[in-house]
Design a protein around this nucleic acid. Structure first.
Lengths: 187, 187
DNA sequence: CCCTTTCTTGAATGGTGGTCAAGAAGTACA
DNA sequence: TGTACTTCTTGACCACCATTCAAGAAAGGG
């Protein structure tokens, strides 16, 4: 029984599909990118994708997994306590804005597909961990600190929705989070 | 030239379609509700809907227009200065939660359809007006007050995304907005 | 040489939002 | 009363989508 047709070919093509999908998803969005277009970009037949991924949603999850993975790793790499929460959030926003269309899809598609919902949950978990680190000293009770974390994530997500030249997401988050932290410190 | 087949029939059927659409959209979401299903619920042929609405998006806008219209009216009816910003936001959240799936669709679909985008803009405008009322005395400069308004709306939108039994949107908004206001008062 | 596993494909399926031209049903005017 | 014009309604149809299926090609092990 042969291990593989060409040893690494499988993983390589998978990666290639994810590469193309990320590019197309970013440019035109998830919904607007058809499997046919994706296949054409990769250079294979439309149905060939289904050998590598069970569904279009799974392709999206693979793309998001890579994007978010890299993002979280980068953020965690910076010593967030040293640079401060605001700087961390600023970087997070810049990163998220880059993949805004993917974030939109994730948000919306989560209420329709189980795979995506699953990913979103894990994404939230990882983000909470990341924030917990930056908030270690910012609060007293466990419950309060958790609420603070969720609130910050909500602010980030909302700010991205209302992001505009006049009111950039950074300013919105800055204002809201400053208020939140101040409140915590005084309590 | 006859004014109408049966005088009011046209508007009546239009309303009937909106009624059914609202019900179906709420139950199963926008995307999951097919035009065929909507037509069946109303009791007409699928394509008959296209005589009343140019597209499915327009049906959604009609539904949203009514929901949001009623919502904003109710909120504006209460003397928001008397009851206070927090109470207003609390009511706003309760209302929005009811039509959560529609809000989701609005958010996502806005980046795909011009009609929806248009509605979303007008919705934001109206909300800003509503908030401006409640914030009249909360801030000094025009620019600051506007940022405050956008931030509050962002918090509301984000809180709705992260709404859960453990961390209800009300608590998230409460925390974030309290911080925001405090910051403004001190500046 | 065959056999199994790994890929790849052309053709087809069911379902979608949306279109079109023809018909039914009222109303106005002759 | 008849007929023309507008308002609605419909069945048949289209292009497109994600997805499936069965059959074929490529490559290595025996």
């Amino acid at each position: 029984m042969p291990k593989n047709r060409r040893e690494i070919d499988s993983g390589q093509k998978r990666t290639e599909i994810i590469d193309c999908a990320e590019k197309l998803f970013r440019e035109g969005g998830y919904q607007a990118t058809t499997m046919t277009a994706l296949a054409r970009a990769v250079g294979i037949a439309p149905n060939a994708i289904y050998w590598y991924f069970p569904s279009k949603d799974h392709v999206l999850v693979a793309v998001l997994e890579r994007c978010h993975g890299a993002m979280i790793e980068t953020l965690a790499g910076d010593d967030s306590l040293g640079t401060g929460l605001h700087e961390t959030l600023r970087r997070l926003l810049a990163r998220l804005r880059e993949i805004k269309s993917l974030v939109d899809e994730l948000r919306w598609r989560g209420s329709h597909s189980e795979v995506i919902l699953e990913f979103r949950r894990s994404y939230h978990r990882r983000m909470r961990l990341l924030l917990a680190d930056a908030l270690k000293r910012a609060s007293n009770s466990q419950k309060e600190r958790e609420l603070l974390g969720v609130a910050i994530m909500a602010v980030v997500e909302g700010a991205l929705i209302y992001d505009s030249p006049k009111f950039p997401a950074e300013e919105i988050v800055e204002a809201a989070v400053r208020g939140l932290i101040k409140l915590e410190n005084e309590a």
